[in-house]
Amino acid sequence: MKQKPTVVLVHGAFADSSSWSGVVEKLQADGYTVVAASNPLRGLHDDAAYVRQLVASIEGPVVLAGHSYGGAVITNAATGLNNVKALVYVAAFVPDEGESALDLAGKFPGSTLGETLHPVPVDLADGSGAADLYIKQEMFHRQFAADLPEGTATVMAAMQRPVTNVALEQASSAPAWKDIPSWFLVAAQDQNIPPQTQTWMAERAGATTVEVTASHAVSVSRPGDVARLIAEAAQVTE
């Protein structure tokens, strides 16, 4: 039997690596080595370079999975990396070259994210100004995690990591999904990325697609479904 791939998980905006906890437990139980990367959420190109360096350091095959904005990150991070054998998008952005997450978010109607955002001015490492975007805590449950208990969503709201407007506005470079097989999990009750947008991106990428009844926080509310799709993608390397 071939070596099981290492699974690298990349969270998106308004979340952190703990959002993958249930998925990690299930994959580890199936014998996979898992790394939940800490996505900086500062800028698409810098975030992708950070993840790229992490993935390049791993020996053997890798399955790279991204949630939400993390999908844009893995799309850029995996380009040209020979050890990445599969891409898994979990209610995620799948940009083509020249597209930003912001462009894709508005492609079809249905997202209510904009009205929930709270911007906080921040200086980036290069000295330029930007805004850190948070979801207002009192709106987080309905917007991000409506299928989770209110108490769980309240804790997630307090722990959320902001994303800069720059990260969402930056255009993608050449996409890895044109060369690497991809899988996509559509969250049918997503208020951040409309399901219609998710389905359109998945079809464009030629991804193997499943749909589940879940909010944007599908990696938390439906970890079994997410882990099963990642394991299915991993089979291309086993």
Rank of each mutant, 00 (worst) to 15 (best):
V220R: 15
D123M: 08
M139R: 13
T213G: 07
E150G: 14
P149W: 07
L124D: 15
T213M: 13
V218R: 04
W177Y: 14
A125L: 12
P194A: 15
T154G: 08
N192P: 03
E150Q: 15
H216Y: 04
V155E: 08
Q189I: 09
E211G: 10
A158C: 01
L185Q: 00
T112S: 13
G206K: 10
S111N: 10
M156I: 05
S128P: 01
V210G: 00
P175Y: 15
P175H: 11
A227R: 10
S221G: 11
T116R: 06
A205V: 12
Y134E: 05
G129R: 12
A217H: 10
T208S: 05
T208C: 00
L168C: 05
G151M: 13
A202G: 04
A145C: 05
V186K: 04
S221C: 06
S100H: 13
T112G: 07
T208Q: 07
E203C: 01
G98D: 04
T164R: 01
L133A: 03
Q170T: 13
W200V: 09
G206W: 11
Q170R: 09
A157F: 02
S111A: 13
W200M: 04
T209G: 03
G224I: 12
H141M: 10
S128Y: 04
D123V: 12
A176E: 04
Q189N: 15
P119G: 14
D96G: 12
L148N: 09
R228L: 03
A131R: 02
G206E: 03
P162M: 05
P119Q: 11
L133F: 02
S100A: 05
V218E: 00
G224Q: 08
G110R: 08
M159R: 15
K178C: 00
A176V: 01
Q160F: 00
A171Y: 11
Q143G: 04
F140K: 09
E138I: 12
V186R: 03
I180W: 07
L104F: 06
Y134H: 13
V226C: 01
L133K: 02
N192W: 02
A202R: 08
E211R: 14
L168A: 10
V120R: 15
F108K: 14
V210W: 03
T154H: 09
E150S: 11
T152C: 01
M139A: 13
V122L: 10
L124R: 10
L229Y: 02
A153Y: 03
P223G: 14
V220M: 12
